[in-house]
Write a protein that binds this DNA or RNA. Structure first.
Lengths: 220, 220
DNA sequence: AAACATTTGTCCGTATGTATA
DNA sequence: ATATACATACGGACAAATGTT
């Protein structure tokens, strides 16, 4: 497996950064279980650094809601409650819808082709029932729109919400339906037309539908 | 003015917490100027603590976008650009609109009276041309709705966006118009009726209008 | 109730990397 | 280009607080 070299960052990679990324990944993929107690000394040894960068990472993770710190008492991984999807998706849907609106005047031909080819890859993954890839490509598709809207506040809020959604999906393995493919096409068309109001509501529904799909999953 | 005692937190107040709150306040009210270089040793001496809680506070402030850290190089207060209001308000408006929608089924009679009395106080402040109070009361009004919606993700995102808006207003002193009073009444009525779609768009416009008012301010 | 074990919070010294002369 | 000054990143020890025996 090729080592993911971070050619995107000309600034030096601090121990805190790598610790943060690693611990976050462990929480998302379930290596660190919900409710698990986090001992900074253990983590420090496991990652080959001192307590300082670990502590700093944990504090950042607390802000993002992945870790809960009780000063003087304990630090633990937050719970994963399936109900939280009903709290996560409405704001995520609203921000994604807003991104689509804001992206419209900033759309280039290149971006549109990129959206189209990404949705094609998404469609292929869905048909191949490769749902893991489908989820990642779906994320890519929406990320293109968010990046195009180019609003730093939206970008950072969506990144945080998306991380939580990813964690829920990892723990519950959601399945994306064929309907998303059509909706993505519709979103592309509406953005090309500059139909702000409609693209906003389609985008919103595209995301909110995941609440139902997620809940259906639970009852099966 | 009643001191906002934090009866919600029975946990101990750490040095990091107080440092964070103090530094954030200094940035918002302009004591620490945009672009100013932050020396952790100086801050530590000023706040009577060591460098560690200062460093940790600065990192949290970085996540919130109030400071910028260049690892190994420097740490400084982020710039306050008046253009950023056009980036802050759209997501804030979208989240406030969503809050109003989500609050509807959770509205109690007490909450409605509270909204009405708060808007009355807002109206009095506007008429008395006490614009500083008006801004604070306007914030209260919207906070009631956000708290009623009771979504932890929305609450935290709005708090962060609101802090940036406050900083801009502090540096530019915006004036709230009479139109807000009417819109607030309208919002209350629409929420009572359960008119989700309309309250959402009124709320959104209520916030987006501030962009124009802000820009008009600049050109006077 | 008091002393202990554990964990977190804080302090400060040192190393490393950056910019300037 | 080298050296010097300086700021930040990291490490490890100590202090404070909590829960337990």
């Amino acid at each position: 497996m090729p080592v993911p070299n971070d050619h995107a960052k000309p600034i030096r990679k601090t121990a805190k950064e790598s610790a943060f990324i690693q611990i976050q990944q462990w929480i998302i993929d379930g290596t660190l279980l919900p409710g698990e107690k986090l001992n900074d000394i253990e983590l420090a040894k496991a990652l080959g650094v001192s307590r300082t960068p670990i502590r700093e990472s944990l504090q950042l993770l607390e802000v993002q809601g992945f870790v809960e710190m009780f000063p003087g008492k304990a630090t633990q991984v937050t719970a994963v409650e399936k109900e939280s999807i009903t709290e996560l998706l409405p704001p995520l849907a609203a921000l994604q819808a807003l991104s689509a609106e804001l992206a419209i005047p900033l759309l280039s031909d290149e971006t549109i082709s990129l959206l189209e080819s990404t949705n094609k890859r998404f469609s292929e993954a869905v048909h191949a029932q490769d749902y893991f890839s489908a989820i990642k490509i779906d994320e890519e598709f929406h990320q293109i729109i968010v990046d195009t809207a180019n609003n730093p506040y939206i970008i950072s809020m969506i990144a945080s919400l998306q991380a939580h959604v990813s964690r829920l999906f990892f723990h519950n393995s959601i399945v994306l339906t064929q309907q998303s493919i059509k909706e993505h096409d519709q979103i592309i068309d509406l953005m090309k037309e500059g139909n702000t109001a409609t693209v906003s509501s389609v985008m919103r529904d595209n995301w909110l539908r995941a609440i139902d799909e997620f809940n259906n999953l639970q009852s099966e």
